[in-house]
Design a binder for these strands. Structure first.
Lengths: 366, 366
DNA sequence: CTGAAAGCGCTTACAG
DNA sequence: CTGAAAGCGCTTACAG
């Protein structure tokens, strides 16, 4: 537990200068400040309350996300649980809103009294992760991936299972498959789009940009995609929704329009928790365990903070693909429903007795 | 911003004793400790990092809850947002797991570096709220109600709308109505049970304990209730599920069993967010706005901490009742499905063309 | 169980 | 922009 005296010694400055660097006082050169902060981080300088070390860790987000989205909530739950085991509390920090002008991330985190951070940050803010890593502040990036080996990260690669999901649809006979994602770019969702493209390519099917939909991660967004797809001239017979809320919105809209899933259209969804079982028909989905992902990030950060782990790490966890009831062969003669609600190829609507394919556990990949 | 010197003066002890009281050092009498802590709380003593005051607030829970339950997640989101406006960070604190033996709540919160707490605590831990209030630590209790006027609380009373929901079912012709709740008692859910009983009484219907089901707040729990209800000899024609997950589990099970909602059974659910629109048919539900509830708690606590608000308060927010598609008149001849899946009164299953009652906005009560 | 006093860790005018 | 030094706020042996 080095004091500012030790930091001052190592950095070759006075304790007053160390104090100024840590507190972002005016009248300190950026060069000196950065040198001092780098020394402080590498020496493991810790925020203290009085003379006691604080045991808080930050959950840094940028405000583009909604904390109540099932993924964020599940990740939080996992992180809180695993950090609690090591005696750490979790502090929620909005790095975009609350960081002061001119403050380095190290200063911001120190001011918030945290000793390390879990960075839950979307793609457009990847630079933030790079900066924090270069400052040497203890961190784990959650759900993004970096090649640079000095950035610690934990994520889940859903690309292989996205390919698998697409190949399953293609094997069922689907040739026109739409792709629906939310409108906040992050690594996760890019993986899934890449999987979609790759599978199409593998089977000689063209990638058609007009079949890629981007909407806010809401029920309404998912419904819009379904309606648009159903009104297309050469309409897709399946949709891969890479967000749970979007998928549920799509299924809901299908019920309301009298479009049968999977007879009229097949839907593959995405599930961060166990909510694929909440909808009817049960969603065939690419799944990741967000609670586990959060827990892994928490465990890793604990190891970094206790000094148990020195080397940087890049962990990729597996997703899995689960076949349930929302997918089936494409219809022989696809119905199309115009935006005015008129069907262009009337089909009989016998009932809701949807045949249920047996639930097959996909690749609980290694 | 009083220092320990000022606290010592007011409490009539030395600064050493104040320090010991704040830190739970051995060798201090409980009497002295409590007196010192009371003075510290009433003087507004604040945790400091170095010489700077911390701006953290705790979200105290007890671990019986799951942070990823839609209600908890929504409440957190609201609290984080409103606290952020006042420059406060939110720290997640498990008061049961992390409080040390012999530590007062004030000491625990001080050690965690928080200046105030939002108490999200279930019924069996009501004493915790009383203790914290009596210690004088700045707090707002979320989603419980206290008569004692020195406990600050913000909650939502869903009893009136529970009565309304029941009366709506009764007006539709239902006479046997089951009630399903989760198995963690808290004020919210007790309100709903009381509303259920009151409405039955108002209409001369008997309260039958065997129609009250308690299950964990999971999809499986909700499914179990539906299955049990469907196999009862004199089976209920409607269920009031006072938890979203339970209601969704029930609807899902109905689809799987070929039980039509609302033709064969009416379902009234509960919604903390907007997820009644995620299921088909859209849930008729008693609704509360959990994000708003969390935001209100955050705003109030901010006012307490800035000294803007001195007097204790008890805020009750309104719920509302929304009629959607999952309710209708009872069937003329109720089908019954034995646990072996055999129907005892076969009915024709023409289709999924469920007539949709127009969506009526209920009592967005004052 | 409590206090007087030494002293740690930090911040902050003051000087240059 | 930086340092030497005063001093705040707290903790902790030591004494009783």
């Amino acid at each position: 537990m080095p004091s500012i005296r030790k930091i001052a010694e190592r950095a070759g400055v006075s304790i007053a200068t160390v104090s100024r660097a840590l507190n972002n006082d005016l009248g300190i050169s950026a060069k000196t400040r950065d040198r001092v902060l780098a020394v402080a981080n590498s020496a493991g300088y810790k925020a203290k309350v009085g003379r006691r070390v604080t045991n808080s860790v930050g959950f840094a987000y940028t405000g583009e996300q909604t904390l109540s989205h099932p993924f964020e909530a599940a990740v939080l739950e996992g992180a809180v649980k695993s950090l609690g085991g090591g005696g750490f509390n979790l502090v929620l920090l909005n790095v975009k809103r609350d960081r002061l002008r001119g403050e380095t991330y190290t200063q911001f985190f120190r001011r918030a009294g945290v000793r390390g951070v879990i960075l839950r940050i979307v793609a457009e803010s990847r630079d933030i992760c790079r900066t924090i890593a270069s400052e040497g502040f203890p961190h784990v990036v959650l759900s993004e991936r970096f090649e640079s080996s000095d950035i610690n990260c934990v994520d889940c690669d859903s690309k292989p299972d996205s390919v698998r999901a697409m190949e399953y649809l293609i094997a069922l006979g689907h040739r026109q498959i739409a792709f629906a994602t939310h409108n906040i770019p992050d690594r996760d969702h890019t993986d899934r789009l890449e999987g979609y493209r790759e599978a199409l390519g593998n089977h000689g099917l063209p990638f058609r940009p007009e079949l890629v939909f981007k909407h806010p991660a809401t029920l309404a967004g998912g419904a819009t995609v379904l309606k648009m797809v159903m009104s297309m001239a050469e309409r897709p017979t399946a949709i891969y929704y890479v967000d749970w809320l979007l998928a549920v919105g799509g299924i809901k809209a299908a019920h309301e329009m009298g479009v049968r899933v999977p007879e009229d259209i097949s839907i593959v969804g995405f599930d961060d928790t166990n909510m694929r079982h909440a909808v009817h028909p049960t969603l065939t989905a690419v799944c990741q365990n967000a609670v586990k992902l959060g827990a892994e990030a928490g465990t890793r950060l604990t190891q970094v903070l206790t000094g148990e782990r020195k080397a940087p790490f890049q962990i990729t966890m597996p997703s899995f693909f689960e076949i349930n009831e929302s997918t089936g062969p494409p219809p022989e003669e696809p119905i199309r429903i115009a935006t005015n609600g008129r069907r262009t190829a009337e089909v009989d609507q016998v009932g809701s007795d949807i045949p249920r394919p047996s639930v097959v556990r996909g690749s609980e990949a290694s």
